[in-house]
Design a protein around this nucleic acid. Sequence first.
DNA 1: CGCTGTTGCGCAAGCGTTTGCGTTCAGTTT
DNA 2: AAACTGAACGCAAACGCTTGCGCAACAGCG
Lengths: 339, 339
Amino acid sequence: MTVSITDVARATGVSASTVSRALRGQPGVSDEVRDRITTIAARLGYTASRSASSLASGRTFTIGVVVPYVGRWFFGTVLDAAERVFSAAGYDVLLYNLGSPETRKRFFTKMPVRKRVDAVLSLLIPDEEESFALRSLGVPLATTVGGPRPGFTVVGIDDHAGTESAVRHLVNLGHRRIGMISGSSGLQHWTTPVERRRAYLDVLADAGIEHDPALEADGDYTVEGGERAMMELLAVSRPPTAVFAQSDEMAMGALRALRRHRLKVPDDVSVVGFDDHELADVIGLTTVAQPVAGQGAEAARLLLRQLDEPEAEPPRHVQMPIRLVLRETTAPPYPRGPQ
Amino acid sequence: MTVSITDVARATGVSASTVSRALRGQPGVSDEVRDRITTIAARLGYTASRSASSLASGRTFTIGVVVPYVGRWFFGTVLDAAERVFSAAGYDVLLYNLGSPETRKRFFTKMPVRKRVDAVLSLLIPDEEESFALRSLGVPLATTVGGPRPGFTVVGIDDHAGTESAVRHLVNLGHRRIGMISGSSGLQHWTTPVERRRAYLDVLADAGIEHDPALEADGDYTVEGGERAMMELLAVSRPPTAVFAQSDEMAMGALRALRRHRLKVPDDVSVVGFDDHELADVIGLTTVAQPVAGQGAEAARLLLRQLDEPEAEPPRHVQMPIRLVLRETTAPPYPRGPQ
DNA sequence: CGCTGTTGCGCAAGCGTTTGCGTTCAGTTT
DNA sequence: AAACTGAACGCAAACGCTTGCGCAACAGCG
C-alpha cells in the first residue's frame, strides 16, 4: 500500500539504516549512495512515517499551540505569525482551540498533548494549576499575553504603561468622567484585565479624579459585549464623556451602541481602544497599538531556541513596544454648559 | 521517565493487552478488572503514546486542516467552528497555514501530512494538481469555499446567486455605473472570484447596462487592497456611483479610501460587501451574509461521517443559505444634475 | 459427566523508524 | 608486509502500543 523505508532500501540495494541516515542528512553515508537514495525515495514518493520516527527517536517535531478562540482577530493573528515560524523550522502545529471553560478544563486534565509534542505555546497565560499541568509535560513552554510566570518564556507588553497612555490622553483632553469597558472573560487568573484596571485607577487618582464604580462595565472582549457594556454606561445618571475599552473589539461594540443612541463620536463621547485591530484604522479608532503578529513570531522563535539548546536558553520575559495611535474617536469634551 | 502501558499493567497485575483493551472500552475485559485498570492508570497519570498507537493501529486520530491565512476573519472563523467539531469527536487538529504561494507549493509537494492524518479539511478549494496530491493520501477529504470537486465533500454557497442579489440591489436603487472590487488572490483556479464576476456581468447585461472594464479593480481580499482598488476606481474619468466588493474586508478598505477622499457613503457612493463580517454591523455595511462558522462545522461533520462509514458516505456538495443584509452603505445615486 | 459455547485474559507478532555497535574494506602508516 | 586507521555500511534491538489467536476456566446443556 504505502511505501516504507524498507521499500526504498530494497530498491536502492542498501539497508534501512542507511536510508534513514541518508535522508536525514546524517554522516556515515557516501555522497554517491546518498544521491541514489534521495532520487529513488523521491521517485517512490516516500515520506517517513512520523508515528514511527517519533516512537523511535522520541522527538515528534510537533508543537502544541493552545489558543482561546482562534476566531478572534488578536489570537488569529498571533497564531498566524507563530505558525509561520514553526513551519519554516520544520515543525508541525497541533492546534487546541479552547473556546469554552469546559473544553479548557478538559484539555488541562486529559492533557492530550502528552507525548505528542516537543514544546507548547500557549496564547494566553495559563493559571497556576494549568501551568503545573503543562510543566509536567517536561517540554519547553512559552506563552504570550500576560505577566511573567516561572518556567515559561513569556512575551507580552507593558499593560500598565499602555493603559496609562490611553487614559492619560483622555484626561489631557479635559475629560473628568471617564468610563472603562473591561473584559474579565471569565478567567480570573489572567493578569491583563487586572493590570489595565490598575493603571486606569492610577491615572484617575493621579489626576485627582474620583473613581466612580458605576463607570466600569464588563464587555467580555467581544463586540457584542462592548455594545452591552456601553449601554450600561449610558444608563447611569451622569454618563461618561469618554470611554476606555480594553480591546478594540469592545470599543467597536461601544461605537455601535453610541450610534444607536444617536450620539456623536467624538463630539458627545470619546472612545479609545486597545490592540490596533486591523480595522481600527478603517473606523478611525484611537487606540493603543501593540505588535500582535510580532509577539507570536517572537514567542515562537524563543521556543525554538529553547528546543535547540535545552540547557543554554533559560525562559525569559520580553516586553514588546506599544504606542498610542491618535485617530478620530477622541476629542475634548463637548461644552454642554454647566453641569 | 514517563509512564507506559506496561507500567500500568504491572501495577494492576494484568497484561498490557488487557490494559489497552480496558482503556479503549473494548470488550473482553471484566468490569471489575476494567475499573481497577482505570483507577490505577489515572493515579499514575498514564496517557497512551499517540505515536505508538498510531503506528500499531494505523489510525492517527488527527485531522489535517489546510488554511490560507488563519489571521483573516473568514478563515479564522471557519477554522474555529471546524476545530470544535473535531476535538469534540476526539480528533486532534494539525494546522497548516499556507499564507504564501511558496509555502502552499511546498506543502503540496512535500505532503507533510502523509501518514500523519486520518482525513484532510481544506478551507480553500485546491486546484487540480493539489487535489491530485491530496487524493494520493488515500484519506477522506473535505473542503469549504469553492465549487464541486470530484472526490471531495465540499460545502459552500451559491456565489452566483449571492452576487446577483447584491448587484441587483444596486441596480434597483437606480445605479448605472457600478464598479466591482474583486480578489484574485493569486490563485487562478479558485472558482469564487470567477463565479462572482460572472454574476456581476450577468446582472449588468440583464439590466441593459454596458460593462465598463475600467470599473473593475483587484483588491486582493484585504483591507489595504480594497483601499487601493477604490482609489483606482475613483481615478477613472467617470467614477462609479456604487461599488460591489467581493469581500467585506475589501469593502471596508473601500470605505476608508472614500473617507480619505471626503466622499460621503452612501450619498456619493454606495458600497456593498460580501460575507457579513463580524464588524460589518458596526460599520453599517450592506452585505451578502453567509454562514461562515456554519460552513466550517458542517464540513467537519461530513468529514467525520465519512471517517465513520468509509463506504456508505460518498462525498457530496452542499450549499448553505445566503441573504442580502441591508444596512447603511447603500442608497439611490445622488442626483448630481445632468452628467 | 462429557460436550459445546462463552467469557476473560495472556502471548507474541507486528507497526516503521532510529541508533549503538560491529563488520568490512580501502587507504595510510610503520 | 603487517598493523592500524577511519569511513561506509549492515544488524538487531529498541520505541510503546494494538490485535489475532490460543488457552484456560466456567456455565449451561442434554
